[in-house]
């Protein structure tokens, strides 16, 4: 029985095969990879580079340039803290710092238990709720740093 991971890499081989020789194949193949793994891991990047006649540097450069690609899988819950102007002046940086402190990670990274990924985002258009953050689809507005532990606790169960 192949493990889930092995199956994914077999799938990736198919993706690469489908894209071979096509002009501009790298980006669409990377998008498919992102969908497949939830990120574009190192080994996948090496396979993409070798299969599509690119260098690993090129693949890594693209993966770090576009925000829709991740290097690590995202957590179960994605916390997006708005750092748009309105939220920022209302202290969104303190919220972000507090979240990182609580779950011991950094913006753009995932907590060790794989539960939370923290991201700083641009204006999400909810300035009336500033400072605002979303956790997956749920919106939390007008929050204070001290509200952070109780909000996170809801998702820890």
């Amino acid at each position: 029985m192949a493990t889930k991971d092995q199956e994914k890499y077999l799938e990736l081989e198919k993706i690469i095969e489908e894209h071979k020789g096509l002009p501009g194949a790298l980006m669409p193949a990377m998008q498919k990879t992102q969908e497949l793994f939830g990120c574009v891991p190192l080994k996948a990047q090496q396979m993409l580079a070798d299969g599509l006649n690119a260098t690993l540097s090129e693949v890594y450069g693209i993966a770090t340039f576009y925000s829709q690609f991740n290097l690590e899988p995202k957590g179960e819950y994605v916390i997006s803290v708005c750092l748009g102007t309105a939220c920022y002046v209302k202290g969104a940086q303190d919220i972000l710092d507090r979240i990182c402190e609580e779950i011991e990670t950094m913006p753009g990274k995932t907590s060790a238990d794989g539960r939370f990924t923290v991201e700083a985002t641009r204006c999400i258009g909810a300035c009336g709720l500033a400072p605002v953050m979303t956790i997956n689809e749920e919106v939390h507005g007008r929050i204070m740093p001290d509200d952070v532990p109780s909000i996170l606790a809801k998702y820890k169960k």
Binding site: Q45, T55, L56, S57, E58, Y60, G61, T64, F65
Partner: peptide, 20 residues
């Protein structure tokens, strides 16, 4: 024909690095 360095990240954070 080696290509072990490239531009990484974006905007002010752009730098020339090896992959990963």
């Amino acid at each position: 024909g080696v290509g072990v360095i490239g531009a990484v990240n974006r905007g002010f954070n752009t730098s020339i690095e090896s992959a990963w």
